[in-house]
Design a protein around this nucleic acid. Sequence first.
DNA 1: GCGGTGCCTGTAATCGATTACATCAAGCTT
DNA 2: AAGCTTGATGTAATCGATTACAGGCACCGC
Lengths: 348, 348
Amino acid sequence: MDKKTPNIQDVAREAGVSTATVSRAISNPSVVSAATREAVLEAIRSTGYHTNMVARNLRQRRTGAIVVLVPNLGNPFFSRILAGVEQAAAQAGFSVLIVDTKQPHANENQLFTYLHSARADGLIVLDGSLPLEFLGEMDAPGRMPPIVFACEWIADSPFSKVVIDNEAGSATAVRHLHELGHRRIGHVMGPPGNVLTETRREGTRAALADLGVEIAPEWFFSGDFSLHSGVEAARQWLTLKRRPSAVFCASDQMACGFISELSMEGYSVPDDVSVVGFDDIDIAQRFIPPLTTIHQPRTQIGTTAAKALIERINSEGRERTIAHQVLTVELVERKSTAPLGQSAVKQD
Amino acid sequence: MDKKTPNIQDVAREAGVSTATVSRAISNPSVVSAATREAVLEAIRSTGYHTNMVARNLRQRRTGAIVVLVPNLGNPFFSRILAGVEQAAAQAGFSVLIVDTKQPHANENQLFTYLHSARADGLIVLDGSLPLEFLGEMDAPGRMPPIVFACEWIADSPFSKVVIDNEAGSATAVRHLHELGHRRIGHVMGPPGNVLTETRREGTRAALADLGVEIAPEWFFSGDFSLHSGVEAARQWLTLKRRPSAVFCASDQMACGFISELSMEGYSVPDDVSVVGFDDIDIAQRFIPPLTTIHQPRTQIGTTAAKALIERINSEGRERTIAHQVLTVELVERKSTAPLGQSAVKQD
DNA sequence: GCGGTGCCTGTAATCGATTACATCAAGCTT
DNA sequence: AAGCTTGATGTAATCGATTACAGGCACCGC
C-alpha cells in the first residue's frame, strides 16, 4: 500500500541497468553513454528517486555537514554570522547543524559526540568558553575533525580562527572619544573570563594609558554583553560622584541598555554622556540617538569561517596548518557621541 | 600510522565478544550480562570508540535530525524561535539543521532534496512563501516526511502549524489606540502576499470597522517588516496632509524605524504620534521610548513546533492528523503610546 | 587473424552499525 | 529424565549507496 521510497535498485531495474551504472549516471555522468544516461534519468523521474544521503555518507565517509556551536542562539548578534556560515556552506554543498552550547543537552556529552559520530565533517565554534577537554580529547592524531573558531576563541589553543582585532577596535573607540575632548572615559565590559571581554578591556586600557588619560577602576563597569547589563551599568554610572563624560560599551546591546536607562532617568545622550558601542548590530543605526559604534563584518566572519573550514575539510586533512584570519573593524560615527563641553556633564 | 577511528568491530575484538553484543551493550544494556557489559564498556574506553551515527541512521532509517527552513536567518526575530526549536530538539535527542530559504543553494533544488534524502526526519517551516510544489510533490502517501509550519504558513495547505492569533493581536493593538482616544489610526504593513501581512491587515481593518473609525487607504503604508521599511513609512507619513495620530506597525523593527526617522525629523513619539509594534523583540523594551507592542512568545513557538514535529516523527507517521495550535499574544503597554490630545498632532 | 586499446557496463565488496533468528547452557517442571 | 523456559550470545542479513575490479565488445593496426 504505502510504497516505500524508491532506492537505487528500483531505478536500476526500471532502467534495465545495474546499480553501479545508475550511481555513475548520477555522480559522474560523463562516463556513461548518452543513451544509458537518458534511460537512467528517465527511470529516476518515473520512480521519483532521490539519493539517500545517509547511505552515500556512510560509504564515502563524509557527511557534507558542518556544525556550528553557538553560545546563545537567542542573541541576535549571531544571526548574521549564522547567515554567513549558511551562505558559504550552501554554496559548497554543505548543510549546517546548529547547537546551542548553553542548552542542557539530552546526552550530557552529546555535544562532544557530534565530533566523533561522523554526524559532521567539521566544526565552527563561536564559544570561547567551551571546556578545552571537549576538544582536547580529540588530540589523537588523525582523529580530530577540522575545527575553526570564530569571533571568540580559546587562548593558546592550536585551532584556526577567524576573528576581528578587538584591541584595535577598542583603541579606535577610545581615541575617538579622546579626540572629542573627553578625558574621563569609562568602559562597560563583557562577562568575566571571556576573551572578548579581556581583549577589549586591554585594548581600552592600553589606549587610555597611551593617551595619558586617567584610568579609574570604578569607571570599568561589569556587564555580560546583554541589554540588561547595560541598564545595570547605567545605574552604576548614576551612583558615581565623579562620572565619566564618555563610555565605551563592549557591545551595542549594552550601549542601548545604557542609553535607555539614562534616558529614563532624564539624562540624554550625547548631551550628558557620549556613548560608543561595539558590533554595529542592525538596530544601532536606528537607535535614538543612532549609535556610534565599532562595525564588525558579521556576515563576512561567518562566510570566512565556513570557507576556511570547508577548505580544510576538502583538503583531506593533510594540511595541519593553523591559520588566523583577522578581519578589520572600523568606527562608524553616528549621533551618540559629541564633543565634550557642548552642554556636557557638570564638572566638579 | 594515523590509525583510523575505531569501529564496533575493534571494540568487539578488544572485548572478546561479537559486534552484536557490543551493539546491545550500548543501546540496550539490560539484555547483556553485567560482566559482559563491563568488558564492553572497558573496551569502548580503551579504544576510544564512538558510535558512527551515519551507519546507525542508515540501518534504522531515521536520522535523529530535523531541519528548519528560515526565510531570513539575518533577521533577529528568528533567533529566539530557533533557540526554542534547538532546546526542544536537544531534549529529545534530535539535532537541528538550518536552511535559509532565501539563499541561493548550490543545488537548485537542494532544499527540496533535504526532504527526500533522508537527511532529516522532519521539517519545521518558518517561511509561508515557499512554493507549494516543493512540498506538494511529496503528496505521494507514505513518502511525505512530517512537516510543521510555525509563525507563517501556507493558506489552505494540509499541514500542521503553530501560530499566533494575528487578527486578535492586531485588534488588540487597534483597540488600545482607540481607547486612548485616537480616531485616525494608520497601519504599516508587511510584504505583499505574506500571510502575516494579510492577517494583520485584516485584523486591523476589521477592528477599525468594528469601532466605526475612519479607514483611509493612504494610512495603510506598505512595508516588509524591516527596519528600513519603517523608515520609509515614516517618510510617507510626513508627506500626508491629514496624518494619523497613531500608527500600528506590523513588526517591531518597522516601529523602531518609523520612530527613529520621525525623531530625526523633529517629531516625537508618543507626543506627536502614538506607535504600537508587533513581536516584542528584545530591543523593544529598551527602545526610546520603550515600545508598546504585541508580545509573541517566540521561544515557546519554537519549542511547541519542535515538540509537535518530534511527536509526529516518533509516532511512526501513523497519525495523519493535522493539528493547528494557536498561541495567544498580549499587549505590552510601554511608552510609545499616549492619550490623544496631550500635545497631539495638529488637527486640521 | 591476433593482440591491443578504449569505452561502457556489471559483479561484488564495502562503509559501520542494528537486529531477526539460531544456538546453547543452565535451571525448572512434572 | 525428558522437555520446556529463560537468558546470553553469536551468525549473518540488512540498510542504500559507491567503487575497485573484471569483463565484453568494437575497432584498430600490423
